[in-house]
Amino acid sequence: MPLYLCSSPKNLIAEERKPAIAKELTHIHCDVTGAPSSFVHVFFVTPDEASEGSVSLFGSIRGGRSDDQKTEITSRMSGAVARLAGLDPATVSMGTVDVPAKWAMEGGDIMPEPGEEAAWFAAHAAKAAAS
């Protein structure tokens, strides 16, 4: 968590562009929120019901981000997808949903609240070392 799900019709986003898009979305998330990049998942899907010629980007992010942060994420990410995929920006839409950190588990541990990642990683590493 976060998970960014990028939905588009098949072949609208070239396969060779996906690594660069994933890298840029990961960078933007970390730049805006300060979250560690190892938490960031970017998956591309091609659902049957995808609208022709358009991309839908949806982010499930930990709760606690400010409205300004979410606005910046949405603006920068949708622009990045359009630029890197060679698409008209008007064809890229984006939304986010807040997921309470305490409702999510990664690596067998409840996810930390934003800003508490360092302590989480230390505890996670200690647990792994002890097992």
Partner: peptide, 11 residues
């Protein structure tokens, strides 16, 4: 099912 080359974690 995320197709090969379509799933990224930590880039």
């Amino acid at each position: 099912h995320i197709a090969k080359g379509s799933g990224f974690t930590d880039s």
